Simulated assay, not measured.
Amino acid sequence: MGSLLEVAVENTRLIVLVDDSRTFSMYIGLLLKRMGFDVLPAESAEVGLKMVRVFRPDLVLIDRYLPGGDGSDLVAEIRRDGDLSGIPVVLVSASDESELAEAADQSAADGWLTKPITPYALHRVLSKTLSATDGRVRRRLRCSWNRKVKIEIGDQALLLPAVSLSEGGVYLRHRDPLPVGTEVRLILPLGEGDLPLSGRVIYQKDVFRDSLRIEPGMAILFEDVDEEILLRLRREVSEELAGDLIEEQGQEDILRLD
Score class of each variant (00 low, 15 high):
Asn11Gln: 14
Glu223Asp: 14
Gly29Pro: 02
Ala42Pro: 02
Glu46Gly: 04
Glu192Tyr: 10
Ala108Glu: 11
Arg234Asp: 05
Glu223Lys: 11
Ala101Leu: 08
Pro57Thr: 03
Leu231Glu: 15
Val18Lys: 00
Glu99Gln: 13
Leu49Cys: 07
Glu239Phe: 09
Arg209Phe: 12
Trp112Asn: 00
Val225Phe: 08
Pro216Val: 09
Met26Ala: 14
Gly111Arg: 02
Ala8Arg: 15
Ala157Trp: 06
Asp105Leu: 12
Val47Arg: 10
Glu99Asp: 14
Ala121Pro: 07
Asp210Phe: 12
Met218Trp: 02
Leu212Glu: 15
Arg147Lys: 15
Arg34Ser: 06
Ile214Ala: 04
Glu99Leu: 09
Asp70Ser: 08
Val125Cys: 12
Leu231Asn: 10
Gln251Gly: 11
Leu197His: 02
Leu32Arg: 00
Asn11Ser: 15
Glu236Met: 08
Asp63Ala: 03
Gly36His: 01
Arg140Val: 05
Leu188Cys: 09
Val163Ser: 10
Phe222Thr: 03
Ile28Lys: 00
Pro216Tyr: 03
Val47Cys: 00
Gly154Ile: 06
Lys205Ile: 07
Pro88Gln: 04
Pro196Gln: 05
Ala103Asp: 07
Ala121Met: 09
Arg142Val: 02
Glu10Ile: 07
Ser211Asn: 11
Val16Phe: 06
Ile214Tyr: 10
Gly71Tyr: 01
Val184Arg: 00
Gly243Pro: 02
Leu172Trp: 04
Glu248Ile: 07
Val54Ser: 12
Tyr65Val: 03
Glu252Pro: 03
Ile214Pro: 01
Glu215Arg: 09
Val207Asn: 13
Ser107Glu: 05
Ser85Cys: 13
Val75Met: 01
Ser25Cys: 14
Ser238Asp: 05
Leu31Asn: 02
Arg13Cys: 11
Ile214Ser: 05
Leu59Cys: 09
Gly193Lys: 05
Ile62Tyr: 01
Glu183Asn: 13
Asp155Arg: 10
Leu5Trp: 04
Ser107Thr: 05
Ser93His: 06
Leu212Thr: 12
Arg136Tyr: 08
Gly193Trp: 03
Ser131Pro: 09
Glu152Leu: 06
Arg185Asp: 14
Thr182Ile: 06
Ile15Gly: 02
Gly154Arg: 09
Gln249Phe: 04
Arg235Thr: 09
Asp155Asn: 14
Ser211Thr: 06
Asp63Phe: 01
Glu77Asn: 13
Gln249Trp: 04
Met35Ile: 06
Met26His: 15
Val225Asp: 07
Arg138Gln: 10
Glu248Trp: 06
Glu77Ser: 13
Glu77Leu: 11
Lys148Ser: 13
Thr182Ala: 13
Leu66Gln: 06
Gly29Lys: 00
Glu228Ser: 12
Ala104Glu: 01
Asp224Arg: 15
